[in-house]
Design a protein around this nucleic acid. Structure first.
Lengths: 341, 341
DNA sequence: CAGTTTTTGATTTACGTACATCAAATTTGG
DNA sequence: CCAAATTTGATGTACGTAAATCAAAAACTG
């Protein structure tokens, strides 16, 4: 049987009350006694029964998810997953609320983060806009003892406890290899559609993509990045424009959201051209495009896994527990038309 | 606050004891009273607090994992993951033990399954050899109320509660498309290395592979399947032999285990030839081969996820609870050299 | 060494559920 | 309608931990 607080008390030769004081860092224990208890805990390998503890405390975990206001399928999907987590909240002892902030707006994000510092929830998950002032705001929260995880896009140089998202450099590199190998020995230009270079995930995808392209597929040249701000209409306009002006385009890498617009442009302008297209994020639109051949491969991050992972990590950090690292690694999904879920 | 047994009692106008009798299907409750209670449960949306219940019961979940005796990295890895789960058992209230059975041996598997029927563990996970007698043995267990999940390889037509593994038809199709597109317009032969056609996962991979090859890549022809019994030495011999006899081979799909032997053969025989190779299962060997260019893509199933998922599902079934479907879907990982974990 | 402060012990209640026991009420059968 | 059988209620204990209270012991202070 696993050891209990009583076993610690017996092993350390102190009373239950003292063990409790040590375990819950209450005052009134001499240094030597505290050490005696801590040694006993280590020796008999005691692990607090979190379920019993939460039951006794009536504990819940108030968590906040900060999501950008964006009208694209990926963010809608992410939001849906948070709502699904909210529906499970009574079972998981969480109290989750979401806060919307304008996309790509560091100061708005900082304002919200600072307000949350007052509120002191058990944990905060945010889709980070990568800016120094955001990093500083996050570091203030961390220093204050509030668990913070970045979601989908990470925050450079910050002290956040965890990043629940894919390795975006690897994603960009993978996209480059898929595009390069699918195109074989063809020569031509490759267009890149991004959301904004203000978010780290997009910057990193581009970085990885460009690196592999340059090193391994010299017959393909990358055109200057098109920034569509993850907005379908804007993406549509910009891609349509590029396709009509540049006849040398034989491949497209869409590393952001707003693919609805990309697909529309492809169907209008490229029916006769054979383009190889790799895009990010599996949505109803990209799925249909993959199936009908408009898109050749989709790289995806599973929003449900990201949200569930963020919650698991925040709860664990709030309790000072460790997590199963391999379980929390968010994998890059690669979908061809054959392995769609 | 979430409703408790007291709330049910109040809502149904009965005592706590009666609610308890209904909840734990104890005898001595009139039909009408039982219905009154069940309605109240439904109306106020009561969900049993599993943590508190397990605490009260001192419940643990004795689980059995039936794994094949196979000397290949994938099965070793699977075993490691089960051991990791065993290390977590006190926290997760599980008591897991493993049973080894000879690979590809239906009758040995049936014997073990029948013995476990006596023992009545809370749940059983098995890597199934796909045979009617195994199916019948599993169905007996299921009929007896013992939760059963198949792991890695499924069991045709059985009543098992869940399959914790990838969609192998999709895996085969995906392999075909990768191989086909990587080979571009080249003409030639493709060799297929399998473990055994006695396990369903291998049969299904081949089925999916052949279907897409035939339909979409007519310039590539599939050679008769090589069965290496997931054994590195055997695979080495057979592949080396095929490569020296057939000069038209330009692609290889290795859909089973024992890739150590395949890689050895490739390095010996194919240094001068440019082969495109797609293999299954990420191990130390296949990883190195992917990085050095011997293999072009690896399809993988995450053994850790499969084991954790199997445990979650078995526990849930033992409690008569539902699971988060999307969470339990085992994804097919596609690794290129750029997105290795 | 007395008096004060700090530390420790002993004990109780609570969380939500399971399970057991005994008494009381209700329903059944003859 | 009465006795027997069945159903229901009331109550207590337990699981492992948290948190509080009060008393007792030990450690300091001057």
């Amino acid at each position: 049987m696993r050891p209990t607080v009583h076993d610690i008390a017996a092993a350390a030769g102190v009373s239950l009350a003292t063990v409790d004081r040590v375990l819950n860092q209450r005052p009134g224990v001499r240094h030597v006694t505290r050490e005696k208890v801590e040694n006993a805990i280590r020796e008999i390998g005691y692990v607090r029964d979190v379920a019993a503890a939460n039951l006794a405390k009536g504990r819940t975990y108030p968590l906040v998810f900060i999501l950008p206001t964006s009208d694209n399928s990926f963010m809608h999907g992410l939001n849906d997953e948070v709502q699904a987590a909210i529906a499970r909240s009574s079972v998981e002892r969480t109290q989750i609320r979401t806060v919307e902030v304008p996309a790509f707006d560091p100061s708005a994000l900082v304002r919200v983060l600072d307000e949350l510092g007052e509120e002191r929830p058990s944990g905060i998950a945010l889709v980070a806009t990568d800016a120094p002032e955001v990093r500083d705001a996050v570091d203030r929260l961390v220093k204050d003892g509030i668990p913070v995880v970045t979601l989908v896009s990470d925050l450079t140089g910050s002290q956040r406890h965890h990043y629940a998202g894919v390795d975006n450099i690897a994603a960009g590199r993978t996209a480059a290899r898929l595009l390069g190998r699918f195109l074989g020995s063809s020569k031509g230009e490759v267009a890149v559609l991004a959301g904004s270079m203000l978010v780290r995930d997009h910057r990193e995808r581009l970085e990885g993509f460009a690196a592999v392209m340059a090193a391994e597929f010299p017959s393909l040249s990358i055109l200057p990045v098109i920034e569509g701000r993850d907005d379908p209409d804007m993406a549509h306009m910009l891609v349509a424009d590029a396709l009509s002006k540049k006849s040398g385009i034989i491949g497209i890498y869409s590393l952001g959201a707003g693919n609805r617009g990309l697909i529309k442009a492809l169907k209008e302008k490229a029916v006769d051209r054979s383009l190889t297209v790799v895009a990010h994020e599996l949505t109803a639109h990209t799925r249909a495009a993959l199936l009908d051949g408009t898109i050749d491969a989709i790289l995806n991050q599973n929003a449900g896994h990201e949200v569930r992972s963020a919650i698991r990590v925040l709860k664990a950090k709030a309790d000072g527990l460790s997590v199963i690292e391999a379980q929390e690694r968010i994998r890059l999904d690669i979908f061809l038309k054959d392995n769609l879920p």
